[in-house]
Simulated assay, not measured.
Amino acid sequence: MGSTRARIAIDAMGGDHAPAEIVAGALRAQEELGVEVLLVGDPHQIEATLKQHTSSHLPQIVPSEGTIEMHEEPLSGLKRKPKASINVAMDLVKQKQADAVVSAGHSGAAMASALLRLGRLRGIDRPAIGAVLPTMVASKSVLILDVGANVDCRPKFLEQFALMGSIYSQYVLGVDEPKVGLLNIGEEECKGNELAIRTHQKLQENSQISFIGNAEGRDVLTGRFDVIVCDGFVGNVLLKFAEAVGEAVLHILKEELPQGLHGQIGTALLKPNLKRIKQRVDHAEHGGCLLLGVAGICVISHGSSQAPSIFNAVRLAKEAIDNQVLERIQSQGRISQQSAVSGQEEE
């Protein structure tokens, strides 16, 4: 690519509020983050939306045909619609015309398209969707993976998730030595089903992971762990419950603030605090989840994403690019060698 600026392909047709909110978030990201965005979708709809904004530098529009609807089965939908917006966006990364993809559309289709078009990184058996959640410790987050890519897992998959999560936590979230936990129903290593028991042993034996034991549900948001691994079924339930809790907290705060003049004065005084609370608990502030393990940067945003969430999704993609997450995951002596040993033991 001729430019050193990160180029982000954005699926402008994906999500409940596409293309209006997607375009608005993309324009803000282009202006404030210094990235170049490529809007993938129906040119007529995108152009009509762009006319509602004033921007000194309009993004490039990359035409596509159709989108994968939420009711469609991902693989069959992708095959029926080879020029769907998510496919075209992934092709831009494959062809080195973009550095990352952001989509708020069908998450299953985004993952399937990434696998089909970009492929897996060497040594990775299954990609994982990683979600960053706030904790009770100020300015500290926890990375949960997998939160939906793999409903059924083997111990070696979870071991790879732990390695990928540790790299992401260290180089993007800035944790010197990420502490890894395994989501389980008890702290003792003998607790849980066969998957949990076997995974516990593998994580304990892996010297490249700072594994500190099992994490119960009540431990997830304490700040004790930097990375928590689990299968995608449990992780997806956990993620959506956490999002609902965040929304409930904001709703309760809004309801409990006093009404009338005294309430307005009190709210004005508390405004900085309320803003920080929203930043910590609102899932829109985190932008989306990174699909780790595929040969390209892919951020999957919530289907209900609006402009602020898309802006944060682009920021997340830029951070992954700037910190060379793909190269670090692929680097020798970390994933590839450990995965080879794991594969010999289990296959």
Rank of each mutant, 00 (worst) to 15 (best):
P258L: 03
P308H: 03
H302Q: 07
G287H: 12
L291Y: 12
C230L: 03
Q279F: 12
G246K: 02
P308Q: 03
P272W: 10
I265M: 08
V299Y: 13
V237W: 09
N312W: 09
P272A: 09
I252W: 09
D231E: 05
N273E: 11
G235N: 04
I310G: 14
E256M: 10
I277D: 04
V237G: 07
L291E: 07
E285S: 13
F233L: 13
I265A: 05
E256I: 05
V245E: 00
H302E: 04
E243R: 00
T267Q: 13
F225D: 11
L292S: 03
Q306I: 13
Q259R: 15
N312G: 11
L238V: 13
T267P: 00
K271T: 10
T267I: 01
A242K: 00
G266R: 06
I228C: 01
I300N: 06
E247G: 14
K240C: 00
L291Q: 09
G223Y: 00
V234D: 01
P308L: 05
A244S: 11
G235Y: 05
H251Q: 14
L290N: 12
E247F: 09
L270M: 15
R280D: 15
E247H: 14
L291R: 08
S309E: 14
Q306G: 05
H251L: 13
G303F: 08
D231N: 06
L257T: 13
V227M: 04
Q306H: 14
H262G: 14
K278D: 02
D282A: 06
G266S: 07
S309W: 07
L274C: 08
P258Y: 02
G266C: 07
A295L: 05
L270H: 10
D282C: 02
F233P: 11
F225W: 11
P308A: 02
D226R: 01
I277C: 09
G246I: 03
E256D: 10
L291D: 05
A248K: 05
S301H: 02
C298T: 15
L270Y: 08
K278E: 12
V227H: 03
G303C: 08
F225M: 14
I300Y: 05
A295H: 15
G287L: 11
K278V: 01
P272K: 12
G263I: 07
G296H: 10
V249W: 02
T267G: 04
L250Y: 08
L292C: 07
L250T: 09
V245C: 03
A268P: 02
L253A: 11
F311L: 14
L270G: 11
E243V: 00
E255K: 15
A242G: 00
I265C: 03
Q264G: 01
V281W: 06
G287Q: 12
F233N: 10
H262N: 08
E256G: 04
N236F: 05
P258K: 04
C298L: 15
Q264D: 01
G246E: 04
A295P: 04
C298K: 09
G303T: 06
S309L: 06
K275I: 10
C289R: 09
I297L: 08
P308E: 04
S301G: 10
L239F: 00
G232R: 00
G287D: 10
E243N: 00
E247I: 11
V237I: 15
G303Y: 05
A268Q: 08
I300P: 09
L270I: 07
